[in-house]
Amino acid sequence: MNGIPMEQGLLLSAMLFVLGLIGVLVRRNLIMMLMSLEVVLNATGLAFVVAGSRWGDADGQIMFLLILTLAAAEVGVGLGLTLQVFRRFHTLDADSLNEMKG
């Protein structure tokens, strides 16, 4: 056994998640936000893989696989939207896109 403690793996996952979250909250550039989102998703996948490794179960990796497909679809649509936004508003500032405020 290689002996990586599970709680440390999960802590790393949490740390990556929080870093990604900070990126989403702080950056105003849409592309940077999307990239930070990738980090968040990846951290979540790491948590699943750690858990799967703990139990010696394939489910963890399958969840990672599904997150992967989700990330792929999300990036596809998200980048398409980013392109549209840029074409229309000539900016990537997420805060200036607030026409739907109440």
């Binding site: 936000m33 997420a94 805060d95 739907m100």
Partner: peptide
Amino acid sequence: TVSASQTGRIRWYASSMA
């Protein structure tokens, strides 16, 4: 009051979720 929270800013929504 409630509609004031509807800023239209995506980062604000993300913060709310966090």
